[in-house]
Each structure stands twice: as C-alpha cells, then as structure tokens.
Design a protein around this nucleic acid. Sequence first.
RNA 1: GGAGGGAUGGCAGAGCGGCCGAAUGCGGAGGUCUUGAAAACCUCUGGGCGUGAGCCCCGCGGGUUCGAAUCCCGCUCCCUCCGCCA
Length: 431
Amino acid sequence: MLDVRRVRSELDVLKAGLARKGADTAELDRLAELDGRHRRLAERRDEVRAKVNHLSKEVGRLRREANHEGAEARMDASRRLGEQEKALAAEAEQVAAELRDLLLRIPNLPADDAPDGVDEADNVVVRVVGHDHEAFGDHQRVPHWEVGGALGILDLERGAKIAGSMFPLYRREGASLIRALTAWALHSHADAFEEIRPPTLVRTATITASGQLPKFADDAYHLERDDLWAIPTAEVPLTSMAAGEILAEADLPMRFAAATPCYRREAGSAGRDTRGLLRVHEFEKVEILAYCTPEQAVTVHAELLGRAEGLVGDLGLGYRVLDICTGDLGQSQARQFDLEVYAPGCDQWLEVSSISWFGDYQARRADVRYRHRDDAKVGFVHTLNGSALAWPRIWAALVETGRQPDGSVVLPEVLSPWLGGTTTIGASPVG
RNA sequence: GGAGGGAUGGCAGAGCGGCCGAAUGCGGAGGUCUUGAAAACCUCUGGGCGUGAGCCCCGCGGGUUCGAAUCCCGCUCCCUCCGCCA
C-alpha cells in the first residue's frame, strides 16, 4: 500500500502516477479526506485521553495521601471525560477502518521508467532471443495437446473427470518432465537462493499482504470451513516470511526459491485459452523472490530477470522479453518484465515468467522492514519476485518444439540427469 | 478431537490494579584506562502516530475500572499428556 502521508504532501504526484496506470484518481481525494478526518478525530481523542490519564494519576496520588474527597472529585471528572473519549474513539476507529480498507485497494505507483500505455498491446518488446520463425518444420506445427495425447503423456480427459476442465493430468514421461524441471530449476538457483517449501494454504492476512486480497478475492480458491486460501503463487507465502520483522541491512538482499503448486480460479477468463495447458487452474511453478534495500532493487530486478532468461535459454527455447506498460501492470507492481516462449505447435508466444518489482508496496502491507547499517533507522524493504519458471507452458513449448518427424519428442539435454538419462519420449527404433 | 500449562524488550527473566514503556542479567553501541587487546568502570541501547503538548503498543481483539502488563471473556500461537493419523 501507499504511504498515507504522501497524500498530504504530494497528492498531485500520486494522482499523476495512478493516472499512468489508468486507475481512478478520485480515490486519492477520498483517501485525503478520510486521512484528514481521522487525524482530527485522533487528535481530539488523544487530548481527552491525556486528561483522563492525568486525572487517574492524581487519584492514585491522592489516595496514597488519604485525601478521599479529592480522589472522589477526580474520579467523577474522569468518568465524565471517559464518556467523551469512548465516543471519539469509536468514531476515529470507524474512519480508520474505512481508511485501511481504501488504502488496501489503491494500486501501487508505476516506476518512472515503466513504459506508458493502456493495455497489453502497448507492452514493449525489449529483445527477442533465439527465435527464428522460419526454422520450424511441419512436424513441429502440432499443438501439444495432440502430441501429448498421442504419446500418452497428457490425459486432459481424465484430469477433467477427476477435478474438472483445466485441471491437467500428466502421465509417465509427461509427469516425470514436470518433476525434472522443478528439480533442475531449484538446483540452478541453489547457488544464491535458499530453497523453501512453504505452506500452500494460507491465512487471509498472508494473501492480503502480497496484494491479491481484498480486491481480487474472486481469483483465488478459498476453503471456507477453515478460512484458508490456496496460493496462486509462491510469492504469497514467501512475501510474508519476514512479515512483522525488522531485518539487518547486512542480510540484504535475502533470496528465496520455492517450488509449489499454484491455484487460480481464472474467473473472468472463461472461454479463453481453454485448449491444452495454456490456462489451467492448478499448475506447478518455481518462484524466486528477494527482499532488498531500495538502492539494491534495480540490480536485483535485473538479476531475477537474468535467472529466468538463463533457464529458458538453457532449455533451448526461443523467447522474448516484454517491458510491461503502465496500463498492463498489476495492482502491486511498479515495474514488470514478462518472458514469453514461442510454441510452434499452437503458434503462440506463451507467458512463462513475470519478473516484478514492487517497491515498498508489499513490504508495507506485510510490515517487512530493515535497519540501516549507518544510522540504525528503520525503513521498509523492497520486494521483487519472478517465476523461474511456470511449467505447463514450458511443457507445451518443449513438447511442440521437440517433436520429431516420427512423432517422438526430444527434450533438452540439460534435463537428462533429471530424467534418468533419457531425453526422448516415444522413440521408435531409429531406422 | 479431549485435558492441562504458557506467551513481557535482540535473548533470558521479574513485575501487590496506580509511583511500569516496564527491574535485573546477558548480548549490542560508544567512552575511560591500555603500545594494542582483555578485564574493570561509565553512558547509551524497542516500535509506531502526531508540527507539538501528547497518544498508542507487555501475543491479538473485546470487556470491567477514575486507572489494566496485572482482573474477566474470545481468538491465535507454543509446550506437555491422551486419542487419531501420512
């Protein structure tokens, strides 16, 4: 969330920022109004409290001096003030609640260097790597749901039978491939990222801290009976790992990597990308996340992007990097790069990673702070995270790209150690 | 699921309803002393709101009271035992 105080000193700056995101700037006026009301009420409440505190102290003193009439008089006066205090406190609390709720819904400001734009059409292609549109043969122009079905490694029908559409079921080498990708990716990050296996059902406070709630509750699975939320990404538990803590600057940046299942209701996208693995309710993903100082943020952002690109490159997939425009940024993001791989079978660029910088927006929600090395002052950390990587679309791109003229699929050599030495699926004897 | 016990500052640990934002010890920072270090001694050492007087925070949220770390209720978490269980 934003720092409310900025609404008092630089309202115009906030409005300009939110306007770039295409957000409703009138909410800032309401925020300013609530903030002003709350401060006035709190001030009056505190004045009354101060009097009550003072009178109560006197009661104690007078009692000790056996001055019972004096004590009684103070108690009467204090009792009357108490009524006032109660009313003022209730009013202040109500305004504070409104303020909190509004604050949680107001988006983050975009970074200055995020490209302006209104929707995904305005995203900027920063670079295209290892892609040659003409290089694919007809044997690669088969969508992965057909390849997977023919090889018996993807069984969408049975997935649907068990859980519904968009709940994929992988078989044999198809299932092993997911496991291999996860092991390989975690291993690749192990040099700098602490591996975490977090809970995947979390409290309301946890999923609110990273920004999914309260605004996007419909997108998440909720277990009502236990009031727990199924995480849509490991970003959610990882962001709250240090919630309520004050970290030492010397420990920053802190880097974490986690492989988890991710659950998304995909409300509002019904009918889009329903074939195959392009959009699913449950999938596995390796997420990398960092807490750092504001000064480190740009470097760490580049580092995370480099990590994701490195993996895609090592898999031998062609990809492009998009600089997400202000209008397409999520609520919490200040800057975001997307990685898209090219899948020849469905002839589409598939988003397989989103590497985001949140500034202190999430840190304020989660209350993650750090103590400066020099002056011991406390400030909010910056959070960054990215997928590295999300597997269903990688699975699709690998299967389509690796398809041979004989219908078998050859996977990248880097996965060999994680696949028991075989990189070929459905090989017919070479003849 | 059942029965108990607990939650206080970085850690340990005290705290008759008022003089407690909180003793004491350890840890940490600075200083004196020393060629340097150790030891000893001295000082400092939680977070937040408010321009300020001031206000809030002793797990969280309510309540009682003139006044709550202290009393009452609810919740969360931790520990012990029983039951169940991958």
